[in-house]
Design a binder for these strands. Structure first.
Lengths: 340, 340
DNA sequence: TTGAAAGCGATACCAC
DNA sequence: GTGGTATCGCTTTCAA
């Protein structure tokens, strides 16, 4: 593979000049520029990224850490990130934390060792990392910018983009209450900030609508499909049986619906189901799943935007914090046919 | 970020020695090894990939090109690839060709400019690239190994892993014929090798079962969901109306099922539907979709395995060609309740 | 068993 | 405008 030296030789100039035309920096006469350009074409020359990285200490790599690759939420979000970054020449390095705090630290270290230019960390709960700042600090110190999806206290000026989980859960719960349900089971996720927030919405909707809260209706899952299935099994045992279920995310809601199907319980007639995230599966499953719409793609884009603006120094002020709003997509899983 | 020099200095040895302990190559006394190791730990040192790449001319990057990121088939396949490669320190660079031949060439070039160590190219039809060898050659010449998912003639010794599309389509068609359908519409994909093969299976099943083939029953789609929807609309207009539909992939089959739902045509009672690929959506949708099972994850793994064995020279013989076999997953979309 | 030094391919400062 | 050259962080002979 040809190097800058061969281009220089062929064009009869120095490597410095070739470098200038490649990077469109500094003065180069039109005539030499053409000569160099031609040599580049003939040799099919493309700069060696590794060599460039070494001198510029920029790799054009972005680390992206997500909790669960199998959850379509993160896929969608990644698309937003990737679409924004790829034209700018950045490439993504994917990693999965599996919601495990040790794994998270490992991956961040690995990003650092790969000398990523920046990283985007997504977590359902940053507080679990005890001292998140300790993880972030080495990155920031080495001029590796970090943006977070989710919330965490930090002494650093760090950008975050989040989603109004409280409001989202509120909307879903309120909707169920308005549909006449007064006993709404909750399939919760793992202990985490996100679960707390979604629980708060569930709780506040009850309070505002003067419906008493029953702790016995809360069943814990782990945000994955199977746990939704299991949780629903427990809910079916309850006496009296709830007439509605709100799951803290869609994949659990779908697991729950499968359990209902297996037990021949009709949705929404016997039990109404609502989820959270509005993943593509909501429209695939029958009945279609009512869900809180999270603008995943836009969140991804915003994360990328924040990061890029930090990396190219077009912004260097205090930590920004963007919260995307919620909306509920009402579908068949919560609306009885006679109510439609 | 600390460099090898700082480690060397701290440990009181030369950089060469540090390099030896990092790479576990050459002789190092246990005593010095320990000293160096300690310095590494204290400094949280990790080798700079870019610098390593520059000397070793290996980037630990693998280029992966897929036709359509939105199709779960490729997601699943990528997982197989990634799982196999990540422990070995390789990272994937994803690119999407959108089934566009120009884009494909671009991406391959970009891989080259990023000096990937190897690349995995997936396409539904390599023949469209006119001279595929012209694309592969620069890669191979620069010691960048290439493996293909799919078939193409090549003068190079190149590894490929494929799937028995003819057999798969045969199984699905045969199943529909056996279920008593004699008029089976076909939703085809874009003109491509894969479409041809799947058509051949459809055709052969008809011949072997002495059912005449009707070209009017073939409607062309583009492998994407919407085209399946549109195709089904056309099929519904046919007179007489077919009693079964075989779509060349699942996302089109699902699009077709949505059209049927919108027009209140019951599946499988009025029209039976079968797809191809066995993506996760098949079990989500109701009725569950009968589909040809393609071992996507295993195919991905095999691709990675082939590539790795070439890269580390553990294999350098003639081009290998592995074809995975088919099996049909029969589900509700093709079996009437009274037949179950 | 260890160290000195050349070289990988680019960038950027300093002369001219 | 253009060229010479130190430098980035590492690997790898070659000597010692």
């Amino acid at each position: 593979m040809s190097s800058i030296y061969q281009v220089a030789e062929m064009a009869g100039v120095s490597v410095a000049t070739v470098s200038r035309v490649i990077n469109e920096r500094g003065y180069v006469s039109e005539k030499t520029r053409l000569k160099v350009q031609e040599a580049i074409n003939i040799l099919h020359y493309t700069p060696n990224q590794a060599a460039q990285s070494l001198t510029t200490s920029s790799t054009k790599l972005i680390g992206l850490l997500v909790p669960d690759i199998n959850n379509p939420v993160f896929l969608e979000q990644s698309k937003g990130i990737n679409d924004y970054l790829k034209d700018k020449g950045y490439i993504l390095m994917y990693a999965e934390s599996g919601e495990d705090d040790e794994e998270m630290s490992n991956m961040v270290r690995r990003f650092l060792s790969n000398r990523v230019d920046g990283m985007i960390l997504c977590s359902r709960d940053f507080t679990q990392f005890g001292d998140m700042d300790a993880i972030i600090e080495p990155a920031l110190k080495n001029n590796v910018h970090v943006v977070l999806n989710g919330y965490v206290d930090s002494k650093f000026e760090i950008d975050r983009v989040g989603f109004d989980n409280v409001r989202g859960a509120y909307l879903a719960t309120e909707h169920l209450l308005k549909m006449g349900h007064s006993s709404i089971a909750l399939i919760a996720g793992t202990d985490s900030t996100i679960s707390e927030e979604r629980y708060r919405g569930y709780r506040e909707a009850h309070i505002d609508n003067h419906v008493s809260l029953n702790p016995a209706l809360v069943v814990k899952g782990d945000f994955r499909q199977h746990s939704g299935y299991e949780a629903m099994l427990k809910i079916l045992q309850m006496n009296p049986r709830p007439t509605a279920v709100f799951a803290m995310n869609d994949v659990m809601a779908i697991g729950a619906m499968m359990a209902l199907e297996d037990h021949k319980v009709s949705v929404p007639d016997e039990i109404a189901v609502a989820g959270f995230d509005d993943i593509i599966w909501c429209s695939l499953i029958r009945p279609r799943l009512t869900s809180v719409v999270q603008p995943k793609y836009e969140i991804g884009k915003k994360l990328a935007e924040f990061l890029l603006s930090r990396m190219n120094d077009s912004y260097s002020g205090p930590g920004r914090h963007e919260i995307f709003g919620s909306r509920l997509a009402v579908r068949q899983s919560t609306v009885k046919s006679e109510q439609q």
